[in-house]
Design a protein around this nucleic acid. Sequence first.
DNA 1: CTGATTTATAAATGATAAAAAGTAAAAGAG
DNA 2: CTCTTTTACTTTTTATCATTTATAAATCAG
Lengths: 241, 241
Amino acid sequence: MQPMVEKRTLGDQVAQILREGILTGEFEPGQRLSEPDLANRLNVSLTPVREALGTLAATGLIVRNGRQGTHVRKLDVEDIENLLAVRETLEVLAVRQSIPNLTEEDDGHMQYLVAEQTKATERVKVDLHSALPRLSALNDEFHELILARTRNEWLINMLASIQDLLVFSRSRLRFNATLERRQASLAEHRGIAQALVRRDSDGAARRMSEHVRHLKEHVIALVPEVQDRERQQVGSQEEPR
Amino acid sequence: MQPMVEKRTLGDQVAQILREGILTGEFEPGQRLSEPDLANRLNVSLTPVREALGTLAATGLIVRNGRQGTHVRKLDVEDIENLLAVRETLEVLAVRQSIPNLTEEDDGHMQYLVAEQTKATERVKVDLHSALPRLSALNDEFHELILARTRNEWLINMLASIQDLLVFSRSRLRFNATLERRQASLAEHRGIAQALVRRDSDGAARRMSEHVRHLKEHVIALVPEVQDRERQQVGSQEEPR
DNA sequence: CTGATTTATAAATGATAAAAAGTAAAAGAG
DNA sequence: CTCTTTTACTTTTTATCATTTATAAATCAG
């Protein structure tokens, strides 16, 4: 009963570990990823590490510069804005392509997700610690449900890789949605779900477009705040007397 | 006198060779790509071949199925339709994002390209052999100019990989635009260019959307014809007596 | 004496070759 | 004819080698 052979190749496993490490912030942006170092830490040879770095470089999470080494990607505000612009247009395409494939079961699932998100958004006020991950998971599941119904493999892959890059930047920017943003996001999800249940393609597309655009504006608006915070840290050192 | 050290890594060179080989139809869809075989043919070791296969798999040109080997991707009608749907929405985003960065020099360049395309489209009637590649190059340059002006690295990369997959399918389907399609394409390019010169974002977006959608419909309509042709070939082998 | 430039050494990546593990196909036995 | 076993071929991993780059030290010039 031991088989349970690892279907995935070693390189894929390493890629997954590295991806999670980058996403959780264990590896910081700009940090150099030494191949022998990683090979030692993971107790594997150089080749699977190389393989993993190759696949991660393909999605853009890391950059390989020949013999100058490979580094974790640094995403600046412009990158995030560009990525979210692409995500907006692709998510709009997703809702449009999903509609012909939606079933009544999907309708129920979407309404369930919105209902759960409503509860979780309320619960955030009293039990932030447990409600926040729940909220994040519900949000992901909502978008992934729509995405899966497109049956467009290429669209699914592209949005998945974009999402990787964005949660990466989110963890780095210590992005936390405000209460207002959370409630707005809930309302927008509800609007999208209602339009989808109505099979209202244009309405769902417009709402999804606004949804992602609002998210973008919120994230972008947060970035200078982060810069301010860092500037204050620097300022505290050279405090004016 | 051979300094001219190859900056690019061997793996990248192999990837480029393989990509061109697939795009030109030297390697047919579904064909198995044996790593030792490729290594022998290119006089390199297994590692760069492996590296190249990894990067090509990331863009979707080939599929790697564990120890079952790696094969050239087979694109069916659904794939082409899905890819062109994604391309449509991304090209629309491209025109919108390019407008703020367009210069008067770009206006002149676009008008030059359209003028050249007009001449080439006329010349196709008398000198098809030389005008056809020219037409293809002009078409590519037109889209690439707009794309470059977006200054959106992510958008550029995604559209480039999609374009790879599409010219691949185009060569495989022996896709040849009809005369009507070529003239329509020229008119559409002219309309897009005029809207861009006017800095008319909505107009350019609408025209680009229609442009790619028309291309999609034209390509899709051609596919059954290809299937018929193949059916005839099979029929000639098992000829009824 | 200080600063810059060059050289040498060390470390990391790129590549090769060889071994290890697994899959599919073919051959042989029941 | 079918099931099992073996064989041959494939990818995957490990280990080794070579090439390049970066860093540091030493020497020379100012």
